[in-house]
Amino acid sequence: MPYKQYTLTPTRDPYSSTGIYIPIDIEDAIAELDKALSDTVKTELKAANNLFDYHFTLGEWMRQNWGLWLGSRLAQHFHDMNVLNPDLMSIFLLRSYQEHLNRPPETVETLLHSLENKRLTPDNFFRKVGEVAQKLVNCDRASFWLIDREKEEVRTKVVVNDKQKTVRVAIGQGLMGQVAESGEMIAIPFDFYKSSHPQVEAIKALDDRVFYRTCSTLTIPVRKASGELLGVMHLINKTQPGNFPPYHPETHPTAPERWRTSFNREDIAIIDRLNQTVSQLIDRVFY
């Protein structure tokens, strides 16, 4: 298949050696391919009989843009698995992604069960929880923030320049800090930019710097069964089902059609179920 037929819209990362976000592991790579590939290519890959047909197209793109020849963190993940050749790495990724496309649809129960059975550590906990939240309610971004009462802040971990970085927000500041302080949910529907919430201008300014478009948000407290507040779940841009073109930063600040919707009561109920699971896992992982 000619390379030009791929309409890839990968996550940009100005701190990456390739300018493209480089996944941490295979699971992260699958999530990135889900975001970057069109529905047409996904359908073709799902039914492909010979994945080697993609070796010099999509496979080549992964080898080049994910730094598989350059010893990137994804390449190092394969080295730890004793897979040393970048050609074999890309074939492995193609097979893993095809298997992902052919799995039965994930349900709330299977996603929560998968989180409970992951090898969670203080380093990967934030990313793994965010990935499950993102899938559960079909949104573009999701993050978990842990409350630190001693430092009066909430914190999460993000990947910057191929390294994990802790991001901290003072309790009372920003959407996450406000929910950590009040214990009350904040839901801002589409169009976020037209909301009267006091955080809108600050988030618009951040969007301008990174060429993103926040359209809707949902920020929910995470509590123990006793009611003790442990953290905050923050979700951005509920995504409509259907065949919409991926978001292109070049269209900023126009709101894309795929995000012209809002989080609803069902989403809140699902995240509440996730939060119950998360609250039970926090003690196991952090304390």
Rank of each mutant, 00 (worst) to 15 (best):
D207H: 11
F211Q: 06
R258W: 10
L230D: 08
Q199L: 15
F211A: 12
T217K: 01
V167S: 06
R265C: 11
A170H: 07
I236T: 12
F192T: 00
L235A: 09
R260W: 00
I220A: 06
R258D: 08
L218T: 09
S262F: 03
R273I: 03
K238D: 12
V200Q: 10
S195W: 10
T254E: 04
R213N: 08
Q199Y: 05
P253E: 10
G231N: 14
I268G: 09
A269V: 10
F244K: 07
I203Q: 05
N243P: 01
G227K: 03
I186W: 02
V210A: 08
E181V: 04
M176Q: 01
V167D: 09
N264K: 08
L206P: 02
V222R: 00
G174P: 12
L230G: 06
A180C: 09
E257W: 05
F244E: 03
L218F: 05
A255E: 06
P253S: 02
I186R: 06
F263N: 00
G242L: 10
S262Y: 05
E181L: 15
T261P: 13
C215I: 04
T166V: 15
P246K: 03
A269H: 14
T239P: 02
Q178C: 14
D208S: 01
S216V: 09
A202F: 09
T214V: 08
L218N: 11
L206V: 11
P249R: 07
I268C: 05
V169W: 01
G174A: 12
S262R: 10
Q276L: 14
T214E: 00
